[in-house]
Write a protein that binds this DNA or RNA. Structure first.
Lengths: 241, 241
DNA sequence: GCATCTTGATTTGTCAGACAAATCAGATTA
DNA sequence: TAATCTGATTTGTCTGACAAATCAAGATGC
């Protein structure tokens, strides 16, 4: 084991982090393998245990290292979005970033259309029907928000892709924030769209899913999000002035 | 300021992290605002400075806190994907996760089609042309990989969405890993697809972009990734057996 | 001989205190 | 008034200590 820090002007913790990560990458360690104890690592790196522990603490945040007293530390699979979850909060982010995330999320949901059609089962359709049914019953109610989110969460779940599903879950607070923060603008645009008959409800989406109409669905899901697309366009134009 | 830790069985650092984050969320602090110095914070939380520093170190990793000697610490906007960047490496991840990321990335790129058509400029088209031209010249060369990635990076850039562009950048090593790791399977599938004429090259995609043919582009981009879709399908079927 | 208990060692988790380096504010001096 | 010096403050790093948990092995009792 050759752990040596590159001389930079970065803090020791940053250097140690980089060194440890690259060491783990190169040393063919796999998940579950034990790693040396803190004193050994600190000594080999030539830093104090406190510095090493700050670095280990970062890695533990990602689930990349598990530690138990006396048992020592082992490598584990990092939860890719685990760290992100902590800092994604509209209160921490600039408006630009929040809108970027909205666009990100919409693009992702449109992009999974093909995956959905490939993997959807009759059971999934039943669940979606139930969600839509409940959503209609409690329309204009506070619970409509929960129905809204369960519908989309279910779509993500159908892909069978844990990372995508987790992403949708993490980004959820951003969406509720946007809906609340820009309620007036959104509602105005929505009225215009509904007057034109250019909207697509969950029921419409479900109908295309049941019919197996992939192209129909794809157009509908784009219409479903057209509200936000227009909002973002108008909002960025207003911001320019 | 009322910083109190909830009694749990989590480590002190985890508790402090949660407490600090929720405190920052609730206390209407905005970007650039100074936060108390380490000794004060540690005292108010009732923990040692080392524990607090482990927590601050985590937050610094996300760029959420900037600190300079003597000047103290200030709040900053976290870089959402900053932490992710460090741990996304195929060597750390299980195969399932790597394939999830591939699917994630493909879905995202398909999903941004509408955004691209909305925002693309003549200059963008010129750049894409140049990238495609270079890619053809050096076909079957090691530099083809670099052309491949610049083409897609450019597409992401056109969206004007920093978060999406950064995501593409971060996930890039995963793709090169997959191409290398599953070269044989991919090449077999590719031959079959090319025999059927079911592929779509960068030149094809560019042609649709230049023609402003949105539907054509969308179909082409799906064909462009069909190779990976088939691979994932076959791979997961093989894994079942 | 076997099961149980005790003891000691190891490792992480937490704490306390110290000093260096950088930087700022204010006093001092030319 | 301008430049310099001094001291204080804050982060960055180091050292040492102890508690708690756990495991291994030896000791003890039957």
């Amino acid at each position: 084991m050759a752990l040596s820090l590159q001389p930079t002007n970065a803090s020791l913790v940053d250097q140690v982090e980089e060194c440890l990560l690259s060491h783990f990458k190169c040393s063919n360690l796999s998940i579950g393998d034990p790693i040396p104890n803190e004193n050994t690592l600190a000594e080999e790196l030539g830093v104090a245990r406190s510095v090493l522990r700050e670095c280990l603490s970062r890695l533990k945040m990602f689930g990349m290292i598990h530690s138990r007293p006396r048992k020592g530390m082992i490598l584990a699979e990092p939860t890719i979005l685990g760290g992100m979850k902590r800092v994604i909060d509209p209160r921490f982010l600039k408006e630009d970033t929040v809108l970027d995330l909205l666009e990100f999320r919409i693009a992702l949901e449109i992009g999974i259309s093909a995956d959905i059609f490939e993997k959807i089962t009759p059971e999934d359709l039943k669940e979606l029907e139930e969600i839509v049914r409940i959503g209609k019953v409690i329309e204009n109610n506070e619970y409509a928000v929960s129905s809204e989110s369960s519908f989309h969460a279910k779509l993500y779940e159908i892909t069978g892709n844990k990372t995508i599903a987790e992403f949708q879950d993490i980004i959820h607070p951003v969406l509720t924030y946007i809906k609340k923060q820009f309620r007036n603008e959104l509602s105005q645009i929505n009225k215009r769209l509904q007057a034109e008959g250019a909207t697509a409800s969950h029921a419409d989406l479900l109908a295309y899913l049941k019919a197996g109409d992939k192209d129909g669905y794809r157009n509908a899901i784009e219409r479903h999000f057209e509200l936000y697309r227009i909002f973002m366009r108008e909002h960025s134009e207003n911001a320019k002035e």
